[in-house]
Amino acid sequence: MIPASFDYVAPQSLTDALAALAEHGDDAKVLAGGQSLLPILRMRLNAPSVVIDLGKVTELQGISDEGDHLVIGAMTTYAAVLASEAVSTHAALLSKAVATVADPQIRHRGTVGGALVHADPAGDVGAPVLALDAELVIAGQGGATRTVPAADFFEDLFTTAVGEDELLTQIRIPKHTGWGAHYEKFVRVSHQWSIVAVAATVRAEGGSIAEARVGLTNMGSTPLRATAVEQALVGQSATEEAVRQACARAADGTNPPSDLNGDADYRRHLASVLTRRAVLAAAGA
């Protein structure tokens, strides 16, 4: 299907992009990588009068090391994340999750920030960013910026803390150097959105789990932390039986959807199974 007609704006700076948002308001849609927006336009599920393309805003691109944090520009592509030695060393969980996104063509166009702001609960970036305790930097009108913890960033289905006249600019991730990581994703066919997925990163000491962070994909209207599992894992030996018992509560506090890919109970069962697999893999067991 052909999209409805729209005007196209391609600002070359963050200031110009924010000005375009202020000018066009609710009539505008922001184009990051296009992974989500382009299909929506083609199916005419949305018909904005203006599309603001951020592809030329170079200040929103790139990965930098700021001591105890990695800073990823919102317009950084999945492919750039996968190619980054800094990310694979200090935020391995994000690398492993991004490697499962779609195919190489999409990974060279899709952006980390675009996926986060779109906030599809079946997307594969939200759970690892949440599990890594990231902070999201948001720019508004007049040069104002604010920093929002990932735990407060995702508000509801396709809804985030980014306002209509604001843009996500950076993802700040505390370094998890030396932590094991794994992203366990369940799909029926290759390149599908996650039916359920689990992002797990673990710091082990002497054969026991000292710290654990676990994020859940598509187990509610937003990405979720499996806090009961995280607490139960601390101090446990990295054996299958110990991890199995800790991960039995993976679905606590979740509200998974029911659809053609499976009902809510099926997803709850999957969550416990995938969490066990992800934690064992992250712990090197």
Rank of each mutant, 00 (worst) to 15 (best):
F6W: 09
Y8I: 02
P11A: 12
D16Y: 06
A17W: 10
L18W: 08
A22V: 07
E23T: 14
H24A: 14
S36Q: 08
I40E: 13
M43E: 06
M43V: 00
V51H: 08
L54E: 11
G55I: 04
K56Y: 08
K56S: 14
Q61H: 06
H69F: 09
V71K: 14
T76C: 11
T77E: 10
A86M: 10
A97D: 08
T100L: 14
I106N: 01
H108R: 04
H108Q: 04
G110S: 06
G110F: 10
V112H: 01
G114K: 14
L116Q: 07
H118M: 07
A119Y: 07
D120S: 10
V125C: 15
G126D: 13
A127S: 12
E135S: 14
G142Y: 10
T145F: 05
F153D: 04
F153R: 09
F154W: 09
L168Q: 06
I171G: 05
R172F: 06
P174R: 12
T177M: 05
H182T: 00
Y183K: 04
V187T: 15
S190I: 15
H191L: 06
H191A: 11
V198D: 05
V198G: 04
A199I: 10
A200K: 12
V214K: 03
M219R: 04
T222F: 13
R225C: 07
R225F: 00
E230Y: 08
Q231C: 01
T239V: 03
E241W: 06
A242W: 10
A246K: 04
C247W: 03
R249H: 14
P256T: 09
P257I: 10
D259N: 12
L260A: 15
D263N: 08
D263I: 01
A271R: 02
A278E: 02
A283Y: 12
G284V: 03
